[in-house]
Design a protein around this nucleic acid. Sequence first.
DNA 1: CGCGTGATTGATAGGCATCAACACGAGTGG
DNA 2: CCACTCGTGTTGATGCCTATCAATCACGCG
Lengths: 279, 279
Amino acid sequence: MPKPTIGKRLHRGSGVVGTDRIPALTPLLFRKLAVFAHISDEQIQHLRSIEYAHGVLPAGTDIIRHGQTYKSILLLNSGWAVRYLVRGNGRRQIANFILPGDLMCLNATVMSHSDYDITTVTQVSYSEFRVEDIVGLIERHPMLCAAIFWCTAREESILLEHLVSIGRRTAYERVAHLLVELWRRLQILGLADGDTFDMPLTQELIADCVGLTSVHVNRMMRSMQAAGLITCEYRPVQRCRITDVRGLEEAAGFEGGYLHFTEMPRKARQALTRHASVD
Amino acid sequence: MPKPTIGKRLHRGSGVVGTDRIPALTPLLFRKLAVFAHISDEQIQHLRSIEYAHGVLPAGTDIIRHGQTYKSILLLNSGWAVRYLVRGNGRRQIANFILPGDLMCLNATVMSHSDYDITTVTQVSYSEFRVEDIVGLIERHPMLCAAIFWCTAREESILLEHLVSIGRRTAYERVAHLLVELWRRLQILGLADGDTFDMPLTQELIADCVGLTSVHVNRMMRSMQAAGLITCEYRPVQRCRITDVRGLEEAAGFEGGYLHFTEMPRKARQALTRHASVD
DNA sequence: CGCGTGATTGATAGGCATCAACACGAGTGG
DNA sequence: CCACTCGTGTTGATGCCTATCAATCACGCG
């Protein structure tokens, strides 16, 4: 499916297409959805049954390009990807980083072509679904449908906070905020090792995310290190350690509520379980 | 329902609660949805039938505050509202302006409390729906449900472009981009008068939208006037006229694709009409 | 071992914020 | 009816934050 990269490279990591075991449908998705509502085994099985392909892509592979028509809906099973927009003059703005358990191209259900680009940052494994099978969830598994809508709502909350960062935070705050957010998201997924986490991002990627230049991102991160808030390693893999969580959160003006891991509102649940059939 | 305003006032206009005719359920919504898919009379009637309240609010009224629990889902029938987030230090970032035909608080279907605030900018009229009735659309009218999902996807596209503005456009470009976008959106709604449109926004609101100060917004707009791109009136009402559309779009780096008024992808339509019952 | 990529640091310039003052109209109360 | 105030638009002066340009370092890879 994917084609070679564009101008600026976006990848990081070995780029080796491994012969690894490909775990189909990461349990991270179900773990995430379970927070929102009870997902029955039957529903899980149904989702598994409509996976029509899966695979592994090397770092730096385009998954969708803007203007291109969507072909399918994807679930990221492992690895990092990034969603971004490119302006006419070539400047790039990253919308969000895509972590394991995140769905990609859900818009394919209601729009025929993409506004944005998605590229893999590391090697990734993914599962693929047909658009019509996902749309079919509306009728076959309303509860799953609601859960997926919840995912998009949660992503929008993250996007809103991102907007606040770029619009109303200083450079230092923006970088700090991004670091805390990534750490928290990975932590929720069980992918953080205490106060340490893998962060396979170049400073240029971070810059394009928070609306700065890579040079300035570097200065901010060095300054955080000097302040004793974080430490960074680059080899063999890029890792970040938050040595002073409170300090970093304070510097960032971080308030984690927007990552809400909250369950389905009662009214909504009742509305879906009243005529309960399969659900 | 609403409570008095917070610190900074966000409203504009007379604030008079008129005794006007309240047109229930603006046709602008259906006109919008019709672009996406054919909406049957039965579906329209159903939507009308689940409207359980409507009313008028003066300018500067809070519709929802962050942290507050959602009570209902709203449709803006007329007037302007604004959705924004406030940081701890009081700085404000506007996420988007809400125009007639837009739905508010759709998140209530999947989340119990709000991340953001919504306040009326002018006097508005609105319709109110129960959360459970909207959730019920999943089972009763899948096509309507898809159409509503399309609305949120379209809003997200606008939000993405907004992110690009703040992250990767100059002050001049940001303001120009916002003006073109508002004009286009109003035009689509039939609320623009040729190259002229009502824009009941203070420069401070514009500033909080594009991540600048009101002083700098002023300079940018004056500069656009000097360049012959726009003209502004303030009394009796605030109106803006784009005297050089091409020039302004070029200055903004505007590419209208993200406002997509595109129809439902074939695959999705088939998936929903195959077992066609009501739809 | 040379090359490319990314991190790092310094010097300089510029865009936008900040502070301040004034203009102007609308509403308000004496 | 007029001072008074408040909100908003407008403009100038000043300074800081961040971009830009440039050079160096470190490492992995062919």
